[in-house]
Design a protein around this nucleic acid. Structure first.
Lengths: 201, 201
DNA sequence: ATTAACATATGACACCTGTCACAAAGTACT
DNA sequence: AGTACTTTGTGACAGGTGTCATATGTTAAT
Protein backbone atom coordinates (compact mmCIF):
# COMPACT_ATOMS: atom_id res chain seq x y z
CA UNK A 1 0.00 0.00 0.00
CA UNK A 2 1.43 3.36 -1.06
CA UNK A 3 0.66 6.01 1.52
CA UNK A 4 0.35 9.45 -0.07
CA UNK A 5 -0.36 12.99 1.09
CA UNK A 6 -1.99 15.43 -1.29
CA UNK A 7 -1.21 19.12 -0.85
CA UNK A 8 -3.10 21.34 -3.25
CA UNK A 9 -4.88 24.58 -2.49
CA UNK A 10 -7.64 24.30 -5.05
CA UNK A 11 -10.34 22.36 -3.30
CA UNK A 12 -12.08 21.15 -6.43
CA UNK A 13 -8.97 19.53 -7.86
CA UNK A 14 -7.80 18.25 -4.49
CA UNK A 15 -11.13 16.60 -3.76
CA UNK A 16 -11.33 15.11 -7.22
CA UNK A 17 -7.85 13.66 -7.06
CA UNK A 18 -8.43 12.24 -3.62
CA UNK A 19 -11.57 10.48 -4.79
CA UNK A 20 -9.94 9.06 -7.86
CA UNK A 21 -6.73 7.98 -6.14
CA UNK A 22 -8.81 6.17 -3.54
CA UNK A 23 -10.12 3.86 -6.24
CA UNK A 24 -6.63 2.50 -6.78
CA UNK A 25 -6.26 -0.49 -4.54
CA UNK A 26 -2.55 0.05 -3.94
CA UNK A 27 -2.79 3.74 -3.09
CA UNK A 28 -4.05 5.24 0.14
CA UNK A 29 -4.52 8.98 0.56
CA UNK A 30 -3.63 9.40 4.21
CA UNK A 31 -4.14 13.15 4.19
CA UNK A 32 -5.26 15.96 1.94
CA UNK A 33 -4.35 19.51 2.88
CA UNK A 34 -4.85 22.96 1.39
CA UNK A 35 -1.67 24.74 2.41
CA UNK A 36 2.05 24.21 2.87
CA UNK A 37 2.03 24.70 6.62
CA UNK A 38 -0.45 21.89 7.26
CA UNK A 39 1.35 19.73 4.74
CA UNK A 40 4.60 20.07 6.68
CA UNK A 41 2.95 19.11 9.94
CA UNK A 42 1.40 16.00 8.45
CA UNK A 43 4.53 14.98 6.58
CA UNK A 44 6.63 15.15 9.75
CA UNK A 45 4.11 13.17 11.76
CA UNK A 46 3.11 10.55 9.20
CA UNK A 47 6.14 10.31 6.91
CA UNK A 48 4.10 9.28 3.85
CA UNK A 49 5.64 7.22 1.08
CA UNK A 50 4.88 9.83 -1.54
CA UNK A 51 4.15 13.55 -1.12
CA UNK A 52 2.21 15.13 -3.96
CA UNK A 53 2.78 18.85 -3.76
CA UNK A 54 1.40 21.81 -5.65
CA UNK A 55 3.87 24.69 -5.98
CA UNK A 56 1.75 27.76 -5.40
CA UNK A 57 0.16 27.29 -1.98
CA UNK A 58 -0.31 29.57 1.04
CA UNK A 59 2.39 29.73 3.76
CA UNK A 60 4.85 27.31 2.18
CA UNK A 61 5.29 26.53 -1.49
CA UNK A 62 5.72 22.99 -2.73
CA UNK A 63 9.33 23.80 -3.54
CA UNK A 64 10.00 25.04 -0.03
CA UNK A 65 8.43 21.86 1.31
CA UNK A 66 10.66 19.76 -0.94
CA UNK A 67 13.66 21.62 0.47
CA UNK A 68 12.54 20.99 4.05
CA UNK A 69 11.94 17.32 3.37
CA UNK A 70 15.40 17.06 1.90
CA UNK A 71 17.26 18.73 4.77
CA UNK A 72 15.26 16.74 7.34
CA UNK A 73 16.33 13.54 5.56
CA UNK A 74 12.80 12.20 5.63
CA UNK A 75 12.47 9.01 3.58
CA UNK A 76 9.54 10.38 1.56
CA UNK A 77 9.43 10.56 -2.20
CA UNK A 78 8.41 13.98 -3.44
CA UNK A 79 6.32 14.77 -6.52
CA UNK A 80 5.64 18.31 -7.65
CA UNK A 81 2.39 18.75 -9.54
CA UNK A 82 1.91 22.21 -10.98
CA UNK A 83 0.35 24.32 -13.70
CA UNK A 84 3.62 25.97 -14.54
CA UNK A 85 6.31 24.80 -16.92
CA UNK A 86 8.70 27.48 -15.72
CA UNK A 87 12.34 26.45 -16.12
CA UNK A 88 13.23 28.12 -12.83
CA UNK A 89 10.70 26.00 -10.97
CA UNK A 90 11.92 22.80 -12.54
CA UNK A 91 15.49 23.78 -11.80
CA UNK A 92 14.72 24.45 -8.15
CA UNK A 93 12.84 21.17 -7.95
CA UNK A 94 15.82 19.27 -9.33
CA UNK A 95 18.10 21.02 -6.86
CA UNK A 96 15.87 19.65 -4.11
CA UNK A 97 16.17 16.16 -5.58
CA UNK A 98 12.45 15.74 -6.08
CA UNK A 99 11.42 12.41 -7.56
CA UNK A 100 8.77 13.69 -9.94
CA UNK A 101 7.66 16.88 -11.64
CA UNK A 102 4.27 16.69 -13.38
CA UNK A 103 2.14 19.30 -15.07
CA UNK A 104 -1.54 19.52 -14.29
CA UNK A 105 -1.98 19.16 -18.00
CA UNK A 106 -1.27 15.45 -17.76
CA UNK A 107 -4.11 12.94 -17.48
CA UNK A 108 -4.88 11.42 -14.11
CA UNK A 109 -3.71 8.01 -15.23
CA UNK A 110 -0.31 9.48 -15.83
CA UNK A 111 -0.30 10.81 -12.28
CA UNK A 112 -1.29 7.42 -10.89
CA UNK A 113 1.42 5.66 -12.89
CA UNK A 114 3.90 8.30 -11.76
CA UNK A 115 3.04 7.68 -8.12
CA UNK A 116 3.85 3.99 -8.53
CA UNK A 117 7.07 4.67 -10.38
CA UNK A 118 8.24 7.26 -7.90
CA UNK A 119 7.41 4.92 -5.05
CA UNK A 120 9.66 2.39 -6.79
CA UNK A 121 12.53 4.79 -6.83
CA UNK A 122 12.18 5.94 -10.42
CA UNK A 123 12.21 9.61 -11.46
CA UNK A 124 9.33 11.00 -13.49
CA UNK A 125 9.20 14.25 -15.42
CA UNK A 126 6.44 15.39 -17.77
CA UNK A 127 7.33 14.84 -21.43
CA UNK A 128 7.38 18.49 -22.43
CA UNK A 129 9.68 19.29 -19.57
CA UNK A 130 12.44 16.82 -20.26
CA UNK A 131 13.72 19.15 -22.97
CA UNK A 132 13.63 22.14 -20.65
CA UNK A 133 15.98 20.37 -18.32
CA UNK A 134 18.75 20.23 -20.85
CA UNK A 135 18.42 23.83 -21.89
CA UNK A 136 18.55 24.85 -18.31
CA UNK A 137 19.16 28.55 -18.27
CA UNK A 138 20.26 29.47 -14.84
CA UNK A 139 18.87 32.50 -13.13
CA UNK A 140 21.37 35.22 -14.01
CA UNK A 141 20.09 37.58 -11.34
CA UNK A 142 21.75 37.96 -7.97
CA UNK A 143 19.89 38.32 -4.68
CA UNK A 144 19.73 42.07 -4.72
CA UNK A 145 18.52 42.22 -8.28
CA UNK A 146 15.83 39.70 -7.47
CA UNK A 147 14.71 41.68 -4.43
CA UNK A 148 14.51 44.85 -6.48
CA UNK A 149 12.62 43.22 -9.34
CA UNK A 150 10.13 41.71 -6.94
CA UNK A 151 9.36 45.16 -5.59
CA UNK A 152 9.09 46.58 -9.09
CA UNK A 153 6.56 43.84 -9.75
CA UNK A 154 4.45 45.16 -6.88
CA UNK A 155 4.47 48.50 -8.62
CA UNK A 156 6.91 50.35 -6.34
CA UNK A 157 8.97 53.22 -7.76
CA UNK A 158 12.74 53.47 -7.58
CA UNK A 159 12.45 55.81 -4.63
CA UNK A 160 10.10 53.60 -2.64
CA UNK A 161 12.34 50.62 -3.27
CA UNK A 162 15.42 52.48 -2.10
CA UNK A 163 13.70 53.33 1.18
CA UNK A 164 12.50 49.77 1.65
CA UNK A 165 15.94 48.25 1.07
CA UNK A 166 17.94 51.02 2.77
CA UNK A 167 19.93 51.73 -0.37
CA UNK A 168 20.25 54.92 -2.36
CA UNK A 169 18.13 55.28 -5.44
CA UNK A 170 21.27 55.37 -7.55
CA UNK A 171 22.08 51.85 -6.43
CA UNK A 172 18.56 50.67 -7.18
CA UNK A 173 18.88 52.12 -10.65
CA UNK A 174 22.15 50.32 -11.13
CA UNK A 175 20.62 47.00 -10.09
CA UNK A 176 17.73 47.56 -12.40
CA UNK A 177 20.10 48.50 -15.18
CA UNK A 178 22.14 45.32 -14.79
CA UNK A 179 18.96 43.23 -14.53
CA UNK A 180 17.68 44.71 -17.76
CA UNK A 181 20.94 43.89 -19.49
CA UNK A 182 21.16 40.38 -18.09
CA UNK A 183 17.63 39.62 -19.24
CA UNK A 184 18.19 41.21 -22.66
CA UNK A 185 15.16 43.42 -22.38
CA UNK A 186 14.59 47.15 -22.50
CA UNK A 187 12.62 48.28 -19.48
CA UNK A 188 11.88 47.36 -15.88
CA UNK A 189 8.42 46.26 -16.95
CA UNK A 190 9.80 43.81 -19.49
CA UNK A 191 12.39 42.65 -17.00
CA UNK A 192 9.64 41.80 -14.53
CA UNK A 193 7.68 39.94 -17.20
CA UNK A 194 10.64 37.90 -18.34
CA UNK A 195 11.84 37.06 -14.86
CA UNK A 196 8.34 36.01 -13.75
CA UNK A 197 7.92 33.86 -16.83
CA UNK A 198 11.08 31.94 -16.17
CA UNK A 199 10.25 31.55 -12.51
CA UNK A 200 13.26 33.58 -11.43
CA UNK A 201 11.47 35.94 -9.08
CA UNK B 1 -30.77 13.00 -17.47
CA UNK B 2 -28.83 16.26 -17.44
CA UNK B 3 -26.58 16.50 -20.47
CA UNK B 4 -23.49 18.57 -19.73
CA UNK B 5 -20.39 19.69 -21.62
CA UNK B 6 -17.18 20.35 -19.72
CA UNK B 7 -14.77 22.92 -21.15
CA UNK B 8 -11.58 23.24 -19.14
CA UNK B 9 -8.04 23.42 -20.43
CA UNK B 10 -6.32 21.70 -17.54
CA UNK B 11 -6.47 18.04 -18.43
CA UNK B 12 -6.01 16.72 -14.92
CA UNK B 13 -8.97 18.65 -13.53
CA UNK B 14 -11.09 18.05 -16.61
CA UNK B 15 -10.52 14.32 -16.52
CA UNK B 16 -11.15 14.15 -12.79
CA UNK B 17 -14.39 16.09 -13.02
CA UNK B 18 -15.60 14.01 -15.93
CA UNK B 19 -14.98 10.80 -13.99
CA UNK B 20 -16.71 12.05 -10.89
CA UNK B 21 -19.69 13.57 -12.66
CA UNK B 22 -20.21 10.28 -14.46
CA UNK B 23 -20.92 8.61 -11.14
CA UNK B 24 -24.02 10.75 -10.72
CA UNK B 25 -26.91 8.84 -12.20
CA UNK B 26 -28.75 11.93 -13.36
CA UNK B 27 -25.77 13.60 -15.04
CA UNK B 28 -24.24 12.65 -18.35
CA UNK B 29 -21.04 14.27 -19.62
CA UNK B 30 -21.69 14.32 -23.36
CA UNK B 31 -18.41 16.05 -24.18
CA UNK B 32 -15.22 17.26 -22.56
CA UNK B 33 -13.07 19.75 -24.43
CA UNK B 34 -9.84 21.63 -23.78
CA UNK B 35 -10.44 24.90 -25.59
CA UNK B 36 -13.13 27.43 -26.35
CA UNK B 37 -13.19 26.78 -30.06
CA UNK B 38 -14.03 23.09 -29.71
CA UNK B 39 -16.51 23.92 -26.97
CA UNK B 40 -18.41 26.23 -29.31
CA UNK B 41 -18.59 23.57 -32.02
CA UNK B 42 -19.96 20.98 -29.64
CA UNK B 43 -22.39 23.35 -27.98
CA UNK B 44 -23.90 24.35 -31.31
CA UNK B 45 -24.20 20.76 -32.45
CA UNK B 46 -25.36 19.12 -29.25
CA UNK B 47 -27.10 21.92 -27.36
CA UNK B 48 -26.32 20.48 -23.92
CA UNK B 49 -28.54 21.24 -20.94
CA UNK B 50 -25.68 22.72 -18.96
CA UNK B 51 -22.36 24.12 -20.19
CA UNK B 52 -19.59 24.14 -17.60
CA UNK B 53 -17.00 26.63 -18.78
CA UNK B 54 -13.60 27.65 -17.49
CA UNK B 55 -12.75 31.29 -18.19
CA UNK B 56 -9.11 31.18 -19.21
CA UNK B 57 -8.95 28.83 -22.18
CA UNK B 58 -7.25 29.00 -25.58
CA UNK B 59 -9.05 30.56 -28.58
CA UNK B 60 -12.25 31.55 -26.77
CA UNK B 61 -12.68 32.35 -23.11
CA UNK B 62 -15.60 31.02 -21.12
CA UNK B 63 -17.01 34.53 -20.95
CA UNK B 64 -16.84 34.91 -24.72
CA UNK B 65 -18.61 31.57 -25.05
CA UNK B 66 -21.31 32.71 -22.66
CA UNK B 67 -21.80 35.78 -24.82
CA UNK B 68 -22.08 33.69 -27.98
CA UNK B 69 -24.56 31.32 -26.37
CA UNK B 70 -26.65 34.28 -25.30
CA UNK B 71 -26.78 36.00 -28.69
CA UNK B 72 -27.47 32.69 -30.44
CA UNK B 73 -30.44 32.17 -28.10
CA UNK B 74 -29.40 28.60 -27.42
CA UNK B 75 -31.49 27.05 -24.65
CA UNK B 76 -28.41 25.97 -22.65
CA UNK B 77 -27.74 26.90 -19.07
CA UNK B 78 -24.26 28.29 -18.58
CA UNK B 79 -22.02 27.83 -15.55
CA UNK B 80 -18.67 29.54 -15.24
CA UNK B 81 -16.12 27.66 -13.12
CA UNK B 82 -12.92 29.57 -12.52
CA UNK B 83 -9.99 30.15 -10.22
CA UNK B 84 -10.53 33.88 -10.19
CA UNK B 85 -12.75 35.94 -7.93
CA UNK B 86 -12.19 39.06 -10.04
CA UNK B 87 -15.12 41.47 -9.84
CA UNK B 88 -14.73 42.31 -13.53
CA UNK B 89 -15.14 38.66 -14.49
CA UNK B 90 -18.22 38.22 -12.36
CA UNK B 91 -19.66 41.42 -13.76
CA UNK B 92 -19.13 40.30 -17.33
CA UNK B 93 -20.64 36.92 -16.50
CA UNK B 94 -23.73 38.57 -15.07
CA UNK B 95 -24.02 40.76 -18.16
CA UNK B 96 -24.12 37.55 -20.20
CA UNK B 97 -26.90 36.20 -18.00
CA UNK B 98 -24.94 33.13 -16.95
CA UNK B 99 -26.80 30.83 -14.58
CA UNK B 100 -23.92 30.01 -12.29
CA UNK B 101 -20.50 31.30 -11.29
CA UNK B 102 -18.42 28.93 -9.16
CA UNK B 103 -14.88 29.10 -7.89
CA UNK B 104 -12.61 26.10 -8.26
CA UNK B 105 -12.19 26.45 -4.54
CA UNK B 106 -15.57 24.89 -3.95
CA UNK B 107 -15.89 21.17 -3.28
CA UNK B 108 -17.08 18.90 -6.04
CA UNK B 109 -20.36 18.20 -4.30
CA UNK B 110 -21.14 21.87 -4.50
CA UNK B 111 -20.51 21.73 -8.24
CA UNK B 112 -22.78 18.75 -8.62
CA UNK B 113 -25.53 20.40 -6.60
CA UNK B 114 -25.07 23.55 -8.64
CA UNK B 115 -25.49 21.66 -11.89
CA UNK B 116 -28.84 20.32 -10.70
CA UNK B 117 -30.00 23.71 -9.47
CA UNK B 118 -28.95 25.50 -12.62
CA UNK B 119 -30.67 22.84 -14.71
CA UNK B 120 -33.80 23.62 -12.71
CA UNK B 121 -33.61 27.27 -13.59
CA UNK B 122 -32.03 28.48 -10.37
CA UNK B 123 -29.02 30.80 -10.26
CA UNK B 124 -25.94 29.80 -8.28
CA UNK B 125 -23.03 31.98 -7.19
CA UNK B 126 -20.19 31.01 -4.87
CA UNK B 127 -20.71 32.28 -1.35
CA UNK B 128 -17.71 34.59 -1.23
CA UNK B 129 -18.78 36.18 -4.46
CA UNK B 130 -22.30 37.19 -3.54
CA UNK B 131 -20.85 40.14 -1.66
CA UNK B 132 -18.68 41.18 -4.59
CA UNK B 133 -21.78 41.54 -6.71
CA UNK B 134 -23.19 44.28 -4.55
CA UNK B 135 -19.99 46.24 -4.39
CA UNK B 136 -19.72 46.07 -8.11
CA UNK B 137 -17.17 48.66 -9.14
CA UNK B 138 -17.54 49.23 -12.81
CA UNK B 139 -14.52 49.38 -15.03
CA UNK B 140 -13.71 53.10 -15.22
CA UNK B 141 -11.43 52.69 -18.23
CA UNK B 142 -12.53 53.37 -21.76
CA UNK B 143 -11.61 51.23 -24.74
CA UNK B 144 -8.49 53.15 -25.65
CA UNK B 145 -7.19 53.16 -22.11
CA UNK B 146 -7.75 49.42 -21.90
CA UNK B 147 -5.92 48.82 -25.17
CA UNK B 148 -2.98 50.91 -24.00
CA UNK B 149 -2.80 49.24 -20.59
CA UNK B 150 -2.88 45.81 -22.19
CA UNK B 151 0.15 46.72 -24.24
CA UNK B 152 1.91 48.18 -21.22
CA UNK B 153 1.28 44.83 -19.54
CA UNK B 154 3.19 43.12 -22.36
CA UNK B 155 6.08 45.40 -21.56
CA UNK B 156 5.83 47.76 -24.54
CA UNK B 157 7.11 51.31 -24.18
CA UNK B 158 5.11 54.44 -24.94
CA UNK B 159 6.77 54.69 -28.33
CA UNK B 160 6.09 51.12 -29.34
CA UNK B 161 2.48 51.46 -28.26
CA UNK B 162 2.03 54.63 -30.27
CA UNK B 163 3.25 52.89 -33.40
CA UNK B 164 1.03 49.88 -32.79
CA UNK B 165 -2.11 51.94 -32.27
CA UNK B 166 -1.27 54.61 -34.88
CA UNK B 167 -1.44 57.41 -32.36
CA UNK B 168 1.20 59.91 -31.32
CA UNK B 169 3.15 59.21 -28.19
CA UNK B 170 1.67 62.31 -26.61
CA UNK B 171 -1.77 60.77 -26.88
CA UNK B 172 -0.58 57.52 -25.38
CA UNK B 173 0.86 59.43 -22.46
CA UNK B 174 -2.43 61.21 -22.00
CA UNK B 175 -4.35 57.93 -21.93
CA UNK B 176 -1.89 56.49 -19.48
CA UNK B 177 -2.18 59.60 -17.37
CA UNK B 178 -5.97 59.41 -17.19
CA UNK B 179 -5.81 55.67 -16.48
CA UNK B 180 -3.44 56.26 -13.61
CA UNK B 181 -5.76 58.88 -12.17
CA UNK B 182 -8.90 56.80 -12.63
CA UNK B 183 -7.28 53.85 -10.86
CA UNK B 184 -5.90 56.04 -8.07
CA UNK B 185 -2.38 54.75 -8.52
CA UNK B 186 0.92 56.35 -9.28
CA UNK B 187 2.60 54.61 -12.20
CA UNK B 188 1.82 52.59 -15.29
CA UNK B 189 3.11 49.50 -13.54
CA UNK B 190 0.67 49.92 -10.66
CA UNK B 191 -2.11 50.73 -13.09
CA UNK B 192 -1.50 47.43 -14.86
CA UNK B 193 -1.47 45.55 -11.58
CA UNK B 194 -4.71 47.09 -10.34
CA UNK B 195 -6.53 46.69 -13.63
CA UNK B 196 -5.45 43.04 -13.95
CA UNK B 197 -6.51 42.32 -10.41
CA UNK B 198 -10.00 43.62 -10.97
CA UNK B 199 -10.30 41.81 -14.27
CA UNK B 200 -10.61 45.07 -16.21
CA UNK B 201 -7.98 44.33 -18.84
C1' DA C 1 50.58 41.70 0.75
C1' DT C 2 48.55 41.71 -3.62
C1' DT C 3 45.07 40.81 -6.51
C1' DA C 4 40.59 40.00 -7.65
C1' DA C 5 35.80 40.17 -6.99
C1' DC C 6 31.85 42.21 -4.94
C1' DA C 7 28.41 45.50 -2.96
C1' DT C 8 27.36 50.00 -2.73
C1' DA C 9 27.52 54.83 -4.02
C1' DT C 10 27.99 59.15 -6.97
C1' DG C 11 27.31 62.36 -10.71
C1' DA C 12 26.40 63.36 -15.37
C1' DC C 13 23.90 62.64 -19.53
C1' DA C 14 20.13 61.66 -22.78
C1' DC C 15 15.86 60.23 -22.85
C1' DC C 16 11.26 58.80 -20.95
C1' DT C 17 7.09 59.76 -17.98
C1' DG C 18 3.22 61.92 -15.89
C1' DT C 19 0.70 66.16 -15.72
C1' DC C 20 -1.48 70.00 -17.40
C1' DA C 21 -3.47 73.58 -20.21
C1' DC C 22 -4.99 74.08 -24.47
C1' DA C 23 -6.47 73.35 -29.36
C1' DA C 24 -8.31 71.22 -33.62
C1' DA C 25 -11.52 68.13 -35.68
C1' DG C 26 -15.45 65.13 -35.60
C1' DT C 27 -19.99 63.63 -33.94
C1' DA C 28 -24.55 64.25 -32.07
C1' DC C 29 -28.44 66.75 -30.61
C1' DT C 30 -31.30 70.97 -30.65
C1' DA D 1 -25.98 77.32 -36.77
C1' DG D 2 -25.03 76.48 -31.98
C1' DT D 3 -23.83 73.72 -28.18
C1' DA D 4 -21.84 70.07 -25.94
C1' DC D 5 -19.06 66.07 -25.99
C1' DT D 6 -15.37 62.95 -27.63
C1' DT D 7 -11.04 61.80 -29.67
C1' DT D 8 -6.69 63.03 -30.70
C1' DG D 9 -2.72 66.06 -30.74
C1' DT D 10 0.82 69.68 -28.96
C1' DG D 11 4.20 71.87 -26.10
C1' DA D 12 6.17 72.69 -21.76
C1' DC D 13 7.72 71.37 -17.24
C1' DA D 14 9.32 68.67 -13.25
C1' DG D 15 10.82 64.68 -12.16
C1' DG D 16 11.93 59.65 -13.12
C1' DT D 17 14.73 56.19 -15.75
C1' DG D 18 18.62 53.70 -17.90
C1' DT D 19 23.51 53.96 -18.85
C1' DC D 20 28.08 54.73 -17.91
C1' DA D 21 32.55 55.78 -15.84
C1' DT D 22 34.33 55.82 -11.69
C1' DA D 23 35.19 55.44 -6.54
C1' DT D 24 35.32 53.27 -1.91
C1' DG D 25 35.24 49.83 1.39
C1' DT D 26 34.85 44.67 2.18
C1' DT D 27 35.73 40.00 1.63
C1' DA D 28 38.07 35.96 -0.44
C1' DA D 29 41.92 33.72 -2.78
C1' DT D 30 46.92 33.34 -3.94
Amino acid sequence: MIRVILAEDQQMLRGALTSLLSFESDIQVIAEVADGQKAWEVIQREVPDVCILDIEMPYLTGLELAEKIKVAHLPCKVMIVTTFARPGYLQKAMDCDVNGYLLKDEPIDYLIEAIRKVNNGEKVVSRDLAATLFMKELNPLNEREIAVLELVKEGLTTNEISKKLFLTKGTIRNYLSTSIQKLHVESRQQAVNTASDKGWI
